[in-house]
Amino acid sequence: MNEFKLAQPQSVGQATSFLSQKPKGCHIMAGGTDLLGEMKNGIIDAEVVVDLKSLPELSFIKREQNKVRVGALTPVSELAENSFIQNEYSVLYEAALSLATPQLRNVGTVGGNLCQRPRCWYYRDSQILCLKKGGHKCFAFNGRNKYHAILGGGPCFIVYPSDLAPALISLGAEVIIASSKKEKKIPLEEFYVLPKENLLQENILQPGEMLKEIQFPLKGSGEKSTYHKLKERGTWDFALVSAAVNAQITNQSFKEIRIILGGVAPIPWRAKKAESVIKGNRITQSLLQQAAQEELRDAVPLTDNAYKTKLVQSIMSQAALSLVKT
């Protein structure tokens, strides 16, 4: 890892005004578990790292009258151990517990998880200049692409690795973005962008901006949620395919449903077509199969990842049916 300087602001205001000066080679460090990996791999050559650990004001989980607020610097382990989250938001609890390891969850933060970089092995290799690093070619397209995108891909075929993002989007979460000018609040779903819109980054954060807080509404009556994740190892793995489902169930039908797929696209993939097939109809296995097929109509598997279409079909019904049974 190359040498760098460490800036330690004492408030969000200081951090954003420092960032607004757009210092050269500047990177934000929350937990640092992803950033340090990139720096050690030589993908990032940081000159200045802005240390957000000195901002304890960003680490909290607060229940308010009509919403829950989570500070971007809250460690993932605190989210997973919070009894209110455990009882009310199964999808978020299950997603938090499914990711990484105790050691990483103690350090890695909620905001950092939402801003982490892709795991594509061509991206993570400093010797390979791929599209995402300003090169001219996606090496996964004609290369080894077992873990790559089947939906929304092109010209780059990464999948977005976060587990918390699908879970939070299923809860209708919004994020607060701070900058030296003024804060803005946007739906988390609109935070992410496809490679065809921006190759070099996965979200809309501009230089000088930082993710400050996540908010989501209190659980509605009859609302149930779950996170299902398929991975190659029993623990500590990124999702091959995952599904966050949040639904309101009445009379054996889904009155409302949100399905967000992980591991299939360069962004957390809202399965809107599947949702519209399911909504308002009586829950059956065949309805769920039909919904998955509808969603997969636009899927374009690469040479090694067609298996993901089958995983999507099974995980979608598994997750949705588990809500009916419990």
Partner: peptide, 30 residues
């Protein structure tokens, strides 16, 4: 900055309490 001065370290003096014993040493950010 507009919000006050920010320290930027190339080397920082820190204290670590390791196995109950306090050590003061200077480290580089990396």
């Amino acid at each position: 900055t507009k919000e006050g001065n920010i320290p930027v370290y190339s080397k920082k003096k820190i204290s670590l309490i390791v196995n109950g014993k306090k050590h003061t040493l200077s480290v580089k950010p990396r």
